[in-house]
């Protein structure tokens, strides 16, 4: 039982991060039909940026803030330089562009940073907290509460502000959005910027637990993508549920089967979901057009 609980804790911790990455996918997909495979690299920029700024002597909170802003700038540049000039291309072409951008970002990160794994000190110590025979890291609580704050903030933004509603309107009907005077390109840029910020925050929160390196974005992107697909691409609650589900499955796979195949679990989950319910757990829009 204690082992089970332990796996649940570690599964939920990484699951929350996958959920945040999946939220980024969802946001950009809804606003533009693009699946942005550079989403995971925002996680890397958040983590690596904070590590290197902090090692340069900048206080951790300030380093984290600068790293998030850097990720937002990268997100906006990605939209402006790679997505916007190709806005008439098919979704598949745009997806390939984001894969190319992801490789490019990793290359730049390899030169700008280094090839080593890095970590950050846990925000409030690393003495495990005992819960019913299992233990939970204080940093896991930071990850969970940070994610909750992001979900709440994003949902307030979308439901309560005119700009947020304009983003939802663009997702619902792009022609009508243009006809009421919404600058659709600006909304897309906003979606890229916000999803970059979410990814970077996730990266900063999780780096004390999972370590970071210039290329960790690939696995975060693939698992966040799996989470978004399992939940139903384009569905915000699906993204959260899918992320937690992938995190838990991965932890159980590693704990009860073999940690060697930990990463395969996410992809088995995608295959299973695509065979059994192709629209994901939460239904949502058809994914055929992608």
């Amino acid at each position: 039982m204690a082992e089970f609980l332990q796996l649940v804790f570690s599964g939920l911790t990484v699951g929350v991060v996958y959920a945040l990455v999946a939220m980024g996918f969802t946001l950009v997909y809804n606003a533009s039909d693009v699946i942005n495979f550079a989403q995971g690299d925002f996680v890397m920029i958040g983590g690596m940026g904070t590590v290197f700024l902090a090692s340069a002597g900048i206080a951790l909170p300030l380093a984290a803030l600068i790293a998030v802003l850097a990720a937002v700038v990268v997100g906006l540049l990605l939209h402006r330089l790679a997505i916007e000039p190709a806005r008439r291309a098919t979704p598949v072409t745009l997806i390939m562009i984001t894969i190319g951008a992801s490789i490019f970002i990793k290359g730049v990160a390899l030169i700008a940073f280094d090839k080593q794994f890095h970590s950050l000190p846990a925000f409030s110590g690393s003495d495990p907290i005992a819960v019913a025979g299992a233990t939970i890291l204080p940093q896991s609580l930071w990850v969970a509460s940070g994610a909750l704050a992001l979900f709440a903030g994003l949902s307030l933004f979308l439901k309560k502000t005119l700009l947020g509603k304009a983003l939802l309107a663009t997702a619902a009907n792009r022609l009508a959005a243009r006809l009421v005077g919404i600058n659709v390109a600006a909304i897309l840029a906003l979606a890229f910027g916000v999803s970059a910020a979410i990814g970077a925050v996730a990266g900063i929160l999780v780096t004390p637990i999972t370590l970071t390196r210039y290329d960790v974005g690939t696995l975060f992107a693939l698992k966040g993508f799996a989470a978004a697909m399992v939940g139903g691409m384009g569905h915000p609650f699906g993204a959260i549920a899918g992320g937690l589900a992938i995190g838990l499955l991965e932890a159980f796979g590693a704990g009860y089967v073999s940690s060697t195949y930990k990463d395969a679990v996410a992809f088995l989950a995608i295959l299973l979901v695509l065979f059994v319910m192709p629209r994901g757990l939460f239904g949502g829009r058809s994914v055929e057009r992608v």
């Binding site: 005119l162 509603k165 304009a166 939802l168 309107a169 619902a172 022609l175 006809l179 009421v180 919404i182």
Partner: peptide, 24 residues
């Protein structure tokens, strides 16, 4: 421009649709 086929923002409320009309 009120387009052919209505093209309302389906998931949004009636009032939000109207407020978005005043986006500019």
């Amino acid at each position: 421009h009120s387009p052919e086929g209505r093209q309302v923002f389906g998931p949004l409320t009636v009032e939000d649709n109207l407020w978005l009309g005043a986006f500019r």
